[in-house]
Design a protein around this nucleic acid. Structure first.
Lengths: 216, 216
DNA sequence: GCCCGCTTCCATCCCCCGGCGGAGCCGCTC
DNA sequence: GAGCGGCTCCGCCGGGGGATGGAAGCGGGC
């Protein structure tokens, strides 16, 4: 079982370099190259590779858009982003697009080989500097401000708050919890004054900004 | 320059194992061990290690809480979570706590060594299975459904929507944009019908679930 | 020039939301 | 048993939100 790889980069020399690097590996086979995002999409559909080494900055269609299209279609391919830049925008857009890995071109070659094998196995791998960015995103963006008052909401009030953050009206919440809408209003009123908020809209904002119901 | 390591695990055998594994490495020095989270916090303050290998499940205080306390204090230490379980809750809580890495106990030993050196260098590293979880979090939780209709909101409507997602009332939005509140209502009405939503609450939910205004 | 879309404003209407006061029930603790 | 806190329900009221219809200026495109 060899890993079938498609190399996508607009620079001929870069493609040649990758091909050389991967040529020595018995379990890896470069089946084709593409020089634009558009080309990558068609090649991916035709050859159905296991792993796609994808550059980001390319003419015609960039690597992010190509990744979205490829992964949006019927495929088992996994995309490994391979770029010179580790800018935030690229990283997070790539992950949102569904890429399985993100390696920088100046990472050591072994790193690239390991990444190809890792994502071919269905796992995922990020370059250390990229990993740091991703973690910082979790550590900062998400824990804005744990609103202490949330702690002394009763279980019922928490439940109501959760449904509010789904966009439900009081009547809908009542049907959901098998209680009357007037009761829901009671809970809402109390919950708002406990959290010192004006209306349900602010409650939704608070919940999302502090990641109250992230898990669900 | 040796990397000074603190090993934290409630099982004696596990600690001994790590000590043995790290003993062979010239650039790594295990300076102490701790068997509880509470112990870890005091040892970290006293010895000021570079890297802390932290188990999660421990008596007295778990590794996540210990991590929070250590990183919350005045320290340059970096925490590498090392556990048997890669449950979602653990992973995301650990990253939020500020851990620099997450390695599983059944990962190959080289992985652990690489992780220690990587995070000592200020970078970050996650086990491939953990990386996959994190990425999926980005790929799914964040891009639930790009609401196509958002594209044909006018600039003004986008602006109003942005302020709605801050929890502002129509009157407040009007003051913010120097227009009357009746005009705001017009924009709101149109924006809601374009997005096929009932009220501003649902608009806020949509915006956050699709990450409309992530960046700001 | 004409039309269309965006933006602004107005009046009117209805309904949901949220505040306020009051009530009964349950289960817990003292 | 008395008391308390949580959950349930009711009525009343005011205000904000959202729908509808109408109007006007302004810009760009045909």
């Amino acid at each position: 079982m060899t890993i079938r790889v498609l190399v996508v980069d607009d620079q001929t020399m870069v493609r040649a370099g990758f091909r050389l690097l991967l040529a020595d590996e018995a379990d890896i086979d470069v089946v084709a190259e593409a020089s634009t995002g558009r080309d990558a999409v068609t090649q991916a559909a035709r050859l159905r590779p296991d792993v796609i080494l994808m550059d980001i900055r390319m003419p015609e269609m960039d690597g992010l858009e190509a990744t979205r299209r490829i992964l949006g279609s019927d495929t088992t391919a996994r995309v490994l982003i391979l770029t010179t830049f580790d800018l935030d925008d690229y990283v997070f857009e790539a992950l949102r697009a569904g890429a399985s890995g993100f390696v920088l071109k100046d990472d050591p070659p072994e790193q690239l080989l390991a990444a190809v094998r890792t994502i071919a196995a269905g796992e995922a791998l990020l370059s250390p500097t990229v990993t740091r960015r991703v973690i910082r995103r979790f550590a900062t963006v998400r824990r804005q401000a744990p609103p202490a008052a949330v702690a002394d909401l009763t279980p019922r009030e928490m439940e109501v708050l959760r449904l509010i953050t789904r966009g439900l009206s009081n009547a809908e919440i009542g049907r959901e919890l098998f209680i009357s809408d007037t009761t829901v209003k009671t809970h809402v009123t109390r919950l708002l004054q406990k959290l010192d908020l004006r209306d349900r809209a602010q409650a939704i904002v608070l919940a999302y900004q502090t990641g109250l119901f992230d898990e669900a």
